[in-house]
Design a binder for these strands. Structure first.
Length: 241
DNA sequence: AGCACA
């Protein structure tokens, strides 16, 4: 009898293919969440997901290194993501961003002919903040290098050492005039938000609670370094348990 | 279930 495995093995790839994803999640949020959840395994070059019928519930996460993809695949296999266990495989083919870096990229024929440069991407939450005179530090680049703009005086830390995840976030370097309402405006937009707690005796810090660690992670990734004033980039970490 | 390159 053959000893070939019954489950078809796909060779390693920089890109992981994820399915069984909760289809209720909007593409924009989904990509952000995937980025947040997988960034711990290494540099992510791209997250792709589509809302077309054929591609619902699926996504591709492209890592710079194959080893990152391997670790992600193993460690996040079955991870409860929006209440559904992720199914992760290697992608069947090389992603374009990788091929381009390789020099092996060859444009495929099914490419659209017409320019689609007319589409512009909207910034996500700037509108809410304008009235308060707040200035986002980021305009929504989840693919960006997760560099944390540490406030002056913070001890230099190795960014590769992540704190243990917690559904409660610890926010530092807030301006003294920050109010719970201001913070709520920022954090409420991410799913699972529960509450903001500020410590009266210690201005400049706050705790923000989410329903679970995944949700808090998404919010943290999105608002990391957000500037309420130009000299106050938020430093967000998981709260100690 | 479904493997793309918005």
């Amino acid at each position: 009898m053959s000893e070939v495995s019954a489950t078809p093995e796909i060779p390693q790839n920089n890109t992981i293919y994820i399915n069984n994803i909760n289809e209720k999640i909007k593409i924009e949020e989904l990509k952000k969440s995937l980025n947040a959840v997988f960034t711990q395994f290494g540099k992510i070059l791209e997250v792709l997901a589509f809302k077309t019928l054929k591609h619902k519930g699926q996504a591709w996460v492209v890592f710079e290194d194959v080893s990152s993809a391997s670790n992600a695949l193993r460690q996040m296999q079955g991870f409860p993501f929006y209440d559904k266990p992720m199914k992760i495989q290697y992608a069947k083919t090389k992603s374009d961003v990788i091929a381009k870096a390789d020099g092996t990229f060859v444009p495929r024929e099914k490419r659209k002919r017409h320019d689609d440069k007319g589409k512009k991407r909207k910034d996500q939450h700037d509108a809410n903040l304008a009235g308060m005179g707040l200035n986002p530090a980021y305009s929504g680049g989840y693919g960006a290098t997760p560099t944390i703009p540490y406030p002056g005086g913070a001890k230099s830390m190795v960014p590769e050492a992540p704190a243990p995840p917690n559904n409660i976030l610890f926010i530092q370097n807030l301006p003294n005039e920050s109010t719970p309402m201001m913070l709520q405006m920022l954090f409420l937009q991410y799913p699972g938000f529960k509450e903001v707690r500020m410590v009266e005796t210690k201005p400049g810090i706050a705790f923000v609670e989410y329903g679970d660690e995944m949700q808090s992670t998404v919010a943290m990734q999105s608002l990391q370094g957000f500037k309420i004033t130009p000299q106050n980039p938020m430093l967000i970490t998981y709260a100690k348990k």
